[in-house]
Amino acid sequence: MRILLETPSDGAAVLHIHGRLDLTAASDVKSAILRAVDNGRPQVVVDLKDVPFIDSSGLGALIGGLRAARTAGGDLRIANPGPQARMILELTTLDRVLVTHETVEAALAAD
């Protein structure tokens, strides 16, 4: 799993994740989100375009990141979820709090 950080504007961070977001990757992803928030970028977008699989640990990392972003006055949004990501978000009803967008640009622009 690799994480690429993009900083498109002040206060915003886009994390492009490549690989499975599972138990192996969860702590690294959560750390990367927390680091972005601590560095003054609480508007976080997690790009799932290259994530073929998420499990409950991966969801936990996103929830932890969401909490940190909101505490800092921002938000965490999901971009480019594939069918597997959509399935687990719906199954756990976390699609109500982890809002998804079709593109990174749409996630950044959302109110």
């Binding site: 499990d55 409950s56 640990s57 969801l59 936990g60 990392a61 929830i63 932890g64 909490r67 687990i88 199954l91 756990t92 009803t93 976390l94 109500r96 709090v97």
Partner: peptide, 19 residues
């Protein structure tokens, strides 16, 4: 039953049961 939406863990076997 799923844990609360703020929980970071505890969903694994609940997911399995739903599937």
């Amino acid at each position: 039953e799923m844990p609360s939406q703020a929980a970071e863990s505890g969903r694994g076997l609940a997911i399995v049961r739903r599937i």
